[in-house]
């Protein structure tokens, strides 16, 4: 089992190792922000309020943290400066880091891993956010833990989506259930649940077609899929993960809200964090919806999925 996984990884992946790729990914995020931060703050030792706050505002907004959120944070900062809690410009960095990592930590929940099997994970998101790739990485991770994984091809709409998932299933030595193109995704899910039980699988990961959160009919279809799972399995699905592109702007909040309303998400996976995007929108999402970020995607390789670490994320921001 392990061998097969390793071989398939070698075949598909000649990139550098897990740790170095994480560092590589995050360092881009870090340099974009921290570079700017240091430039602003260490230029002057003393706090030059108005100029600095203007600059900080631009910095936070450019990280997609959102204008409302930014103004709120900066208001708090201003208060602290007034009350002379902050005297030196260097302290500002700590203030912001603490503020944001505090928010992320408070709301971050542990990754559920219950014993009842199959542990069922439903993966949803807008078009092109990286659902199928993330499923491949997840399947790989579980396979490495010696878990038996089944992938369900719930995206019956997009051309070649089934094939794409099948290739990931082969690469990760997972089982694979699919119907033909255009089939009812709920039926695929139903079959895959039966199969997962019958074959004694530990993990069932369900792919769904990408859909814009504003498309009511397609959101109803997702609810139906969830109902089918609930019917078959009392406490299922154990995870409903929203996959979100880190380059997403303020629309990310709207996305998360509507998917959460429809399905009650258990977590978010932030993908494509290996670009220069900061993924700052998740700070607002965590703050407003209390839905934790569980994983981050930092590359195209099988092992480029990492458990989200709030402190690390906040540190990378500042």
């Amino acid at each position: 089992m392990q061998f097969a996984v390793i071989i398939s990884v070698m075949a598909t992946q000649q990139k550098s190792g897990y740790l170095s790729s994480l560092k590589k990914g995050l360092s881009k995020t870090k340099s974009a922000l921290a570079g700017g931060m240091d430039k602003i703050i260490f230029k002057a030792k003393k706090v030059d309020e108005s100029l600095m706050i203007d600059k900080l505002e631009e910095l936070l907004i450019s990280a997609d943290l959102g204008v409302k959120f930014t103004l709120q944070v900066l208001n708090d900062l201003r208060k602290d400066i007034k009350e002379r809690k902050i005297k030196e410009s260097r302290e500002i960095k700590d203030f912001l880091k603490e503020k944001i990592s505090g928010m992320l930590t408070k709301k971050n929940a542990e990754i559920l891993c219950r014993n009842d099997s199959p542990h069922t994970v439903m993966v949803v998101g807008v078009n092109g956010s990286g659902k199928t790739t993330t499923i491949g990485k997840l399947a790989y991770q579980y396979s490495c833990e010696d878990k038996k994984v089944l992938l369900a091809a719930g995206d019956t709409f997009r051309a070649a989506a089934i094939k794409q998932l099948q290739i990931w299933a082969e690469r990760t030595c997972s089982d694979f259930i699919s119907h033909q193109d255009g089939a009812d995704p709920s039926a695929v899910v139903f079959d895959s649940m039966k199969a997962a039980k019958a074959r004694g699988k530990d993990i069932l990961i369900i792919d769904t077609a990408g859909r814009l959160h504003t498309n009511t009919n397609l959101m109803e279809q997702l609810k139906k899929i969830k109902r089918v799972i609930c019917k078959e399995m009392e406490d299922g699905p154990h995870e409903i993960l929203l996959i979100m592109d880190a380059t997403t702007g303020q629309n990310g909040l709207s996305q998360a809200k509507m998917f959460h309303e429809a399905l009650h998400l258990t977590g978010i996976v932030l993908t494509k964090l290996d670009s220069t995007s900061k993924g700052g929108i998740v700070v607002q999402i965590i703050d407003e919806l209390k839905v934790p970020v569980k994983y981050i995607g930092i590359g195209e390789g099988l092992e480029d999925l990492k458990v989200f670490n709030p402190e690390e994320f906040a540190n990378a921001l500042f």
Binding site: I61, D64, T247, T248, G249, N251, S275, T276, S277, I281
Partner: peptide, 12 residues
């Protein structure tokens, strides 16, 4: 380009 892109759109 994705219409939902944030501030990063400029760099992209």
């Amino acid at each position: 380009a994705d219409a939902m892109t944030g501030q990063e759109a400029v760099n992209i």
